[in-house]
Design a protein around this nucleic acid. Structure first.
Ligand code: FES
Ligand code: FES
Lengths: 144, 144
DNA sequence: AAAATAATTGACAGTTTTAGTCAGGTATGA
DNA sequence: TCATACCTGACTAAAACTGTCAATTATTTT
């Protein structure tokens, strides 16, 4: 029941992006240094984040990435969806649902996992990037 | 964010055990046939379930496994703990907590995962084996 | 006591997923 | 045109997952 580092990194990078967002776009190189994440790995993630409509890219010198919309409108579950990490605890509920549990269409434990998946989704959908950024700002203040 | 089959199988086997529990112990061979899970894999799981205090073993002919206590007293999260599936979404909260996220003791997204882990635990702790078994009985009735 | 049953243990292997790296290509602005 | 920065796809080492196999030990029935 571990979240992949892909999802963890994506969320962390987005917070970092939003924290340091000024008038100019933020380069991946900068995020890479701040968060100590491999640049090439970040590139992979941001391709998906852009396709997911979470960020927009700005090319050329002085370019980088900016939020595609207001931070308060970006939910955490959207970020995770974009990097293609499933939030469903069992495979039988996936898009191409294949469940090997039993010969019957649904096994007896199906509803438990369904409930669990719904809770996870609900929790992550209840938090926005703006929330996380505000929390991060507070924490930085405390550490000083 | 996928639950391992180990955890899925363990819960399913426990429901099956409880469903078919009469006066005599239930053998793993029987569960293996009912649920179509490899016998040797079940053996691995039940060693851990026994050590976790979920079931008791009865050896010899006519032996098998019985619940160590009433089904209403067995929570789903206990079953999953017994087979050593972590319910925590990130490694930094594990017992031997090692977090590679950042040089600081806690990264900005730590609290999100902490909250998520707590929700997962809470949900699974709110359901008992008795609940699942009752649900399974109803479902079987409907299918008939 | 002997045989049959069933649990118990530990080692092992094939497959899949993860967590990245590497090498190059393409678009943009100065 | 040249530096910057994004974009793409192939590739890989390591870990985890999902089991299997072989052998042993304990208990009950005959
Ligand atoms: S059918 Fe969905 S968990 Fe078994
Ligand atoms: S320190 Fe726990 S998630 Fe980063």
């Amino acid at each position: 029941m571990r979240l992949s580092t892909k999802a963890q990194y994506a969320v962390r990078a987005m917070v970092s992006l939003n924290l340091n967002a000024g008038t100019a776009p933020v380069s991946l190189r900068a995020i890479s240094e701040w968060e100590d994440i491999s640049l090439t790995y970040l590139e992979q993630l941001f391709v998906k984040l852009r396709r997911g409509g979470i960020v927009d890219s700005v090319r050329g010198p002085g370019g980088g990435y900016v939020l595609a919309r207001d931070a308060a409108q970006i939910r955490v579950d959207e970020i995770i969806d974009s990097v293609e990490e499933s939030l469903v605890p069992v495979s039988c509920m996936e898009a191409n649902g294949e469940c090997a549990c039993s010969s019957d269409s649904r096994c007896v434990t199906h509803s438990v996992w369904q409930g669990l998946g719904a809770r996870i989704r609900m929790f992550l959908a209840s938090m926005t990037l703006a929330d996380l950024t505000a929390e991060a700002r507070q924490q930085i203040k405390i550490n000083k």
